Amino acid sequence: MKKTAPATKRATKPATRTARAAAKKAARPKKPQPLDAIVGADGLARPPWAAVDPLLKHYYDTEWGMPVRDERGLFERLSLEAFQSGLSWATILRKRDAFREAFAGFDPDVVATFGDKDVERLLADERIIRNRAKILATIANAAATIRLRDEGGLVALIWSFQPHTTPAPRTIAEIPTTSDESIALSKALRKRGFVFVGPTTMHALMEATGIVDTHLVDSHRRGSSGVWPRD
């Protein structure tokens, strides 16, 4: 008579195979995240954050890293960087037109006059980031921008922290998030009454406005600002 395996052994075989398969899968090397420039269908190399989303791609190709040397332009960038804290830049870009409308085109002279009714209006505006602290910070920074005119203005102060050299990152991991200059700029602005201007936020501002060039070396935008050579 043909012998059959005990039921317990038959039951353990599928479980063993499943465990082995799971272990094998876990042992496979994980797909690495992109750390360098990605060449798009148009043949142009961009960092991963600007390589897929059409809005971010357009912003990267046409605006990010280009010099901003007017008061209203820098006040807008300063304000949007503050609102971006803790959020994605794509979120801010999608709301940018609404921000401009809500904050009077980021005219410091107008924003500095905002009172309680304006704060409540902004908190009720679903098109923007409804964060009371950031709204109040924008109003306070508008007033600080006006006061700063007696010292030469916002543009002169921010650009005075342009470093002598700029990073030359080949991978995302090599891009700094702060610098000695961004720390010093943060302190200088805080001393003059600005808020939501931490070193990381100021470094992002310096990158976005061409004060430093942190485009990846392989990026098609490297050196395109006219402020820094391509290397």
Rank of each mutant, 00 (worst) to 15 (best):
F114T: 01
L216E: 01
Y60W: 07
D150W: 00
K30S: 15
V68E: 11
V155A: 03
L80M: 13
R192S: 15
A45C: 08
D231P: 07
A82K: 06
V119L: 12
R230H: 07
F106D: 08
R77Y: 02
E207C: 14
E63R: 01
K30T: 13
T200C: 06
A144P: 01
L157V: 03
I38C: 11
Q33R: 11
L35I: 09
A98S: 13
M202E: 13
A27M: 02
A173L: 05
K95V: 08
R221F: 08
P29W: 13
A133Q: 06
A23S: 14
A204V: 01
S182Q: 10
V111M: 04
E76F: 09
N141V: 00
A208S: 10
R221Q: 12
H58K: 15
A7K: 10
F99D: 12
D61A: 11
Q33D: 04
M66W: 03
A51R: 03
T177I: 07
I172C: 12
F83K: 12
D70Q: 06
A188P: 04
L136H: 10
T209H: 03
T165D: 15
F106H: 02
A22W: 00
A188Q: 04
R10H: 09
D150T: 04
I183Q: 05
W159G: 07
N131P: 03
L78G: 13
A144R: 06
K24G: 06
V39T: 15
H220S: 07
K13D: 12
V197M: 06
N131Q: 12
V227I: 10
H164N: 10
L216N: 02
E126V: 02
P176R: 04
F75V: 05
V52P: 01
T145Q: 07
E181C: 13
D231G: 15
A11M: 01
A112P: 05
D116N: 07
F114W: 05
P14L: 14
R230G: 09
P176D: 10
N141W: 01
R69P: 03
W89A: 10
R46K: 11
K187E: 14
L78N: 07
P32S: 12
E181H: 14
A26M: 08
V110K: 11
L44H: 11
K31N: 08
I183N: 08
A98I: 00
D61N: 06
A184K: 09
R222S: 13
I92N: 00
R28P: 00
I211N: 08
D180C: 06
L157A: 14
Q33G: 06
D97W: 00
L35P: 02
V111T: 06
L80P: 02
R190D: 13
L123G: 12
G210L: 04
I211Q: 11
T12M: 12
I92W: 03
P169W: 00
A22C: 05
N131I: 00
S186W: 07
S85L: 03
R69M: 03
R72G: 09
T145R: 09
D180T: 10
T177Q: 11
L136S: 06
R190Q: 14
K3V: 01
P48M: 04
E101D: 14
R77G: 15
L157Y: 10
T201R: 13
A5P: 05
L205A: 14
R94K: 09
